[in-house]
Design a protein around this nucleic acid. Structure first.
Ligand code: MN
Ligand code: MN
Ligand code: ZN
Ligand code: ZN
Lengths: 138, 138
DNA sequence: ACAAACTCTTGACTTGATCCAGTATTATGT
DNA sequence: ACATAATACTGGATCAAGTCAAGAGTTTGT
């Protein structure tokens, strides 16, 4: 059921060692960059090209199997946890990223005061601040 | 009072043609990229280096005279309107960016349900969707 | 007008990500 | 199991946004 190969099959995606590796890596380390994921996959299956990592991440994100977060001023992060509209808390000092449950519920979790005629499909919320570790060091 | 040169002086910044040009360009076209601002300044004072544009934008943003917005997957945007904690609405199709007043008030305008020990100093909110123009074209 | 402090220009460089063409792998039909 | 078509992977070039560093040029305070 949650078998990675079945998950790919269920979405009509050909099963490859690279995609399985990427799926596993994303599950293993939430909020990792494409680069960190590539490293992780390499330590599992020996090697993978940068392009294959981006292809897999893009495809999986497109199908809704994983989620992409793009914090200002750093590489995109990927995670496993989808469908629950949670938000993120990022440390300005060390970049540590933590999950925050949405205070409201379903996406879009906030209604804009004046939507200017737009049809809104997502409200992206990122809280910036300082993490506990960096607070004690400061 | 709102004279650009006075504004710079008031913040202890030496007055240069480049900085004045950047200030004027940012005021003239809200939510423009550094590149668009450079073009605008060039049409005003003849020429400016890319670096000078980045220097000026960084310095002005640091002093709080302008605000930088960094939408996922595109270049940073700059604007004049500061100090009112407003948010943004971005069209996924054409990139058009509109202002939205904050529904709550002062920053951080949202309290996270569980702050995980972080000290939050900003809540960045971007609404994604489709603008009126792109809706009719679709 | 002078010196000190600061800014601007130029060109190389970095990072994150994408494009492309050729090769290899996977899935499908017999 | 085998041939074939569809699809994915690789390696290298390329791109966009932004940063770095050294020397030339401005601005400011006296
Ligand atoms: Mn998360
Ligand atoms: Mn705005
Ligand atoms: Zn931290
Ligand atoms: Zn649009």
């Amino acid at each position: 059921m949650t078998d990675p190969a079945d998950l790919l099959r269920k979405h009509g995606l050909p099963i490859t060692a690279q995609r399985l590796g990427v799926l596993r890596a994303v599950a293993a380390r939430p909020h990792a960059t494409a680069d960190a994921i590539a490293e992780d996959v390499r330590s599992g299956i020996g090697s993978i090209s940068r392009q294959a990592v981006y292809n897999a991440l893009g495809m999986l994100a497109g199908k809704g199997l994983i989620r992409r977060i793009q914090p200002s001023g750093s590489a995109a992060l990927y995670e496993d946890r989808v469908g629950d509209n949670h938000h993120h808390l990022i440390c300005r000092t060390c970049g540590t990223t933590a999950d925050v449950d949405c205070a409201v519920g379903k996406a879009p979790c906030l209604s804009a005061s004046n939507n200017a005629g737009f049809r809104i499909d997502e409200a992206e919320v990122i809280y910036w601040g300082t993490c506990p570790d960096c607070l004690t060091k400061a």
